[in-house]
Design a protein around this nucleic acid. Structure first.
Length: 882
RNA sequence: GCGGGCGUGGCGGAACUGGUAGACGCGCUGGACUCAAAAUCCAGUUCUGGUGACAGAGUGCCGGUUCGAUUCCGGCCGCCCGCACCA
């Protein structure tokens, strides 16, 4: 039944409604978060974007998820903090400057302006008053201050380290920027170079960062595991081997690190890294060794080539004494597979029980002696040929260790060597090693946060005095030569030394952009503080972030750096007692799309394609009339394959709510979502359907504020059951970030309400029904509001409300209404469903059993067999065993 | 090699702690409305057989536990992701 007040014929016009409501929200400033607000806080944060210029569908998905949570939590009465900023330093701006002769700052701020407008067109409930850009001196001056604080606290050090050097661009490259051994931009073969760089001492917190992973119960297990592996803790023993006096070196000993001291009697050689000081020393008198070391440098250490690289070594002629037998001399090799920056840069090789050592020993004819015998093997005949044994077993051929377990032997060796002096120290020392390295933050780039340091010939490394901060980037720059533009600037680096007043040079390296993103979440809590990076009380008020959302690609670096930075900030008094910045983490999947190719193999944009499908499948046709195109694999949206969809186009054609709904609806949020034209059409249709449905409900609904009477008809009870039941499920689903299920639930409710509206034509519209329709319409609208906020406002207003849906309290569900007074039991015979049985909720087991056995399909399925047992699971199922 | 995850209709996916497999959506098929199209509405849609009621099979494969398994256990197969000479 549709009366004349119905809006049935009117279509919902998103293009008009969306900007209208966005303007209302902005004018009323309803998403501003009060720092003095006493309500419980909820901090929702999505990883802030790099201002590339345009948002992409991945952003739409990311920010929509966060916005759903923000709006939902706001409706539930929380003081929600939902800010936005820009990860604005980085190489692309410099590359753009190089290509377009523009300034990185101009390029960046123009991009920010257009992306901000795009984000606003999505209708995100963001407190824009807290917006920050990391490239702004008002942000990075605080970062410089913290750098100095960390330096004073011993958390920053300067040391030499190997880096990937691009000889054409004259710059250091991050590992990710090295592709197949070549610079990603220049294509030049990357060299390994030693440079003096600034490091954050993340390794100081290795134990703490690893141990605290257990407290992050609302993080994906996968991310915690990845971080644990990255930190890579191992327990072992440092053992010093005495060297026989040799003319080549002055050193008297070699220290090795091992996790298998139990296999010490299986040792066949020692190996040191090519970069080991001892190798360098020996090479001075051995040109062949020098050549070998040089060779190792060219192999590259971060390349996939390592995988297939042969084990190579060079016999230094040095001899080391076995710790438990001074007459037992072990050869010392320089070897390409030993890493200088792990452990001590030296190992002892036990070929029988380590695959790498075995390959090496086999290549150089060093033999092997098994010292761990697997259970069930005869120690006399147990042999190793080309596969090392690293399993459990009993010690053999190991003198005083024979017969022990691996654990006992480890303990025994450690105890003996720790108790025995060599020189003025014990020969052995138990040590914990980590794979984690200190975080090198020096970058030879312009568009980054300047490192606030001055180098003075007389005074050495001098921190820039706090009063002189920020050290601002110079604006008059040229980018027409490769290398670090800052270093080439004629004047900027020339300063007087703050200590002695003499001529000095500024540090021209800038900080890794990961530094910028390591504390922005804390800055958001009080971005107005000009005097300090943070206001610790506000940090403690809002942090940790309750729900952080972003891509899995940041599982290690960003998330680990931020965890480190928070601890360093705590040590320097910037965050109060806060330790972990992100209490809840969610890693969302990508937006992927089909690819299309022309007959000649060139890629085609989805926007130039029309899809037709029939019973035989899907076909793509070129819109320019050029015939059929080939449908290719579904892949991550990328410019190179042209399988991108511009969010602006979608918002213009269908509205932001449609885009939001679609990215929430089709897949579980942690998985990839496949963007399809049909899917968007479906979402757009549903927007219209909801608008019509709310109109129809309104036509039948009681006036606003009417309460549903206590005593209602079965029809009204069914409507209430549907509305309250859906509400409960939608709540649960949003709380657990299962947006796709919340979407399905709302579809389901819409179906039920449509059916109820349709049925009403033949029934009388009684006051209880009118009240139930009113309640259902209001509830449906508010359930919708986190996901489709504009449509919800339009519906809310149409339903006669004068406040905003965005400010309305979440409706409260009455669980009692959802309970039915009958229960429909599926009845199985031998585990196979044969019938349905509807009984009163309070029916006893005997009555249920009798009713079930009386059912015709049950009797038929039993085929006259006697009933052995009847299993009744209350509220669930009946199973007859016959 | 090590670590982790995932295999369910034509497709995306649902199924709470072992309890009606396929919710919801997309697509498709048929119908209504329309001069026609779009939009909308109705019905159907796991497979096989049957007009039908119904019967049988079915959650990657093989086996086990159980009254009952997509779910738990063992063994395979396939795909995806991360790390990778870490001593």
């Amino acid at each position: 039944m549709v009366d004349e007040h119905s809006m049935d014929s009117e279509r919902y016009n998103a293009r008009e409604a969306e900007p209208k409501w966005q303007a209302v929200w902005e004018e009323k400033d309803i998403f501003r978060t009060g720092n003095a607000d006493a309500r419980p806080k909820y901090y929702v944060l999505e990883m802030f974007p790099y201002p590339s210029g345009r948002i992409h569908m991945g952003h739409v998905r990311n920010y929509t998820m966060g916005d759903v949570i923000a709006r939902y939590k706001r409706a539930r009465g929380f003081n929600v903090l939902h800010p936005m900023g820009w990860d604005a330093f980085g190489m692309p701006a410099e590359n753009a400057a190089w290509h377009n002769k523009s300034h990185p700052a101009d390029w960046t701020y123009a991009n920010i302006a257009s992306m901000r407008a795009q984000l606003k067109s999505m209708g995100l409930s963001i407190d824009w008053s807290r917006e920050i850009a990391t490239c702004d001196p008002s942000y990075y001056k605080h970062q410089q201050k913290m750098f100095l604080d960390f330096l004073a606290a011993g958390l920053v050090v300067r040391k030499k380290s190997k880096v990937n050097w691009d000889p054409l661009d004259h710059t250091v490259l991050a590992n990710e920027q090295v592709i197949d051994g070549r610079g990603w931009r220049s294509g030049a073969l990357v060299e390994q170079r030693e440079l003096t760089q600034w490091f954050f001492k993340i390794t100081d917190f290795a134990e703490e960062l690893l141990g605290s992973l257990d407290t992050l119960t609302r993080w994906p297990e996968k991310v915690r595991l990845m971080q644990a592996n990255w930190i890579g803790r191992s327990e072992g023993l440092c053992v010093r081997f005495e060297l026989d006096p040799a003319p080549a070196v002055k050193a008297r000993e070699i220290e090795v690190y091992t996790t298998r001291p139990d296999t010490l009697f299986g040792a066949k050689f020692l190996a040191i890294a090519a970069d080991h000081p001892l190798a360098a020393e020996a090479a001075r008198k051995d040109p062949a060794l020098a050549a070998f070391i040089d060779d190792c440098h060219h192999g590259g250490t971060s390349l996939a080539a390592i995988e297939t690289a042969e084990k190579k070594g060079y016999d230094t002629r040095l001899k080391a004494r076995h710790p438990f037998d001074p007459e037992w001399k072990l050869p010392v090799y320089a070897a390409n597979f030993v890493l200088m920056d792990y452990g001590t840069g030296a190992i002892f090789g036990c070929p029988a029980h380590d695959q790498r050592d075995l390959e090496f020993a086999n290549a150089y004819g060093l033999g092997n002696t098994p010292v761990v015998c697997p259970p069930g093997q005869d120690p006399e005949t147990f042999e190793i040929t080309d596969t090392a044994y690293d399993g459990d077993g009993v010690l053999i051929h190991s003198r005083f260790l024979d017969g022990m377990s691996i654990a006992a032997a480890k303990e025994d060796v450690a105890r003996r060597l720790e108790g025995r002096p060599l020189g003025n120290r014990p020969q052995g020392k138990r040590e914990v090693q980590y794979r984690l390295r200190d975080w090198g933050i020096s970058r030879q780039r312009y568009w980054g946060c300047p490192i606030p340091i001055i180098h003075c010939e007389a005074c050495g490394v001098v921190p820039v005095p706090a009063a002189d901060l920020p050290v601002e980037l110079p604006k008059d720059m040229s980018f027409d030569e490769p290398g670090n533009p800052l270093a080439r600037h004629p004047a900027w680096k020339h300063v007087t030394c703050p200590k002695c007043g003499g001529a000095a040079l500024r540090e021209t390296d800038t900080m890794d952009t990961f530094v910028d993103s390591s504390w922005y979440f804390a800055r958001f809590t009080d971005p107005w503080n000009e005097a300090a990076p943070t206001t610790p009380e506000m940090v403690e008020k809002f942090l940790p972030v309750d729900q952080y959302i972003g891509g899995i690609e940041h599982a290690i670096l960003h998330l680990l750096y931020a965890r480190f930075f928070t601890r360093a900030m705590q040590a320097t008094g910037h965050v109060g007692a806060l330790k972990e910045p992100f209490a809840g983490l969610f890693t969302q999947g990508m937006v992927v799309h089909e690819t299309y190719r022309d007959a000649d193999g060139t890629w085609l944009y989805p926007a130039d394609i029309r899809i037709e499908s029939d019973a035989s499948g899907r076909h793509a046709f070129k819109l320019d009339g050029g015939g059929e195109a080939l449908i290719g694999a579904i892949e991550k949206m990328s410019k190179s394959k042209k399988n991108t969809v511009d969010p602006d186009d979608i918002i213009l054609a269908f509205g932001a709510d449609t885009a939001r709904w679609y990215v929430l609806s089709d897949s579980p949020p942690e998985r990839d979502v496949i963007w399809t034209e049909e899917g968007v059409q479906g979402a757009a249709k549903f927007v219209q359907r909801l608008w019509r449905l709310v109109g129809e409900l309104k036509g039948l609904a009681a006036p606003m504020g009417t309460l549903v009477p206590a005593d209602v008809s079965a029809e009204a009870a069914a409507i209430r059951r549907a509305a309250h039941g859906s509400l409960i499920k939608v709540e649960e689903d949003i709380e657990r970030l299962r947006f796709n299920r919340a979407v399905a639930q709302i579809h389901d409710l819409a179906n039920k309400l449509s059916a109820a509206v349709g049925d009403i034509e033949t029934a009388k519209v009684t006051p209880d029904l009118r009240a139930a329709f009113r309640e259902a319409a209001d509830m449906l609208t508010l359930m919708l509001a986190p996901m489709m906020p504009h449509l919800a406002e339009e519906c809310w207003a149409a339903l006669g409300h004068t406040d905003l849906a965005a400010q309305a309290a979440w409706p409260s569900a009455d669980r009692a209404l959802v309970v039915e007074d009958t229960i429909a039991y599926p009845v199985q015979v031998n585990g196979r469903k044969r019938a349905d049985l509807v009984v009163a909720r309070d029916a006893g087991n005997a009555a249920i059993e009798a009713a079930a056995l009386a059912l015709e399909p049950v009797r038929r399925a039993l085929e006259g067999r006697p009933v052995k047992k009847v299993i009744i699971v209350p509220q669930r199922i009946v199973n007859v065993v016959g």
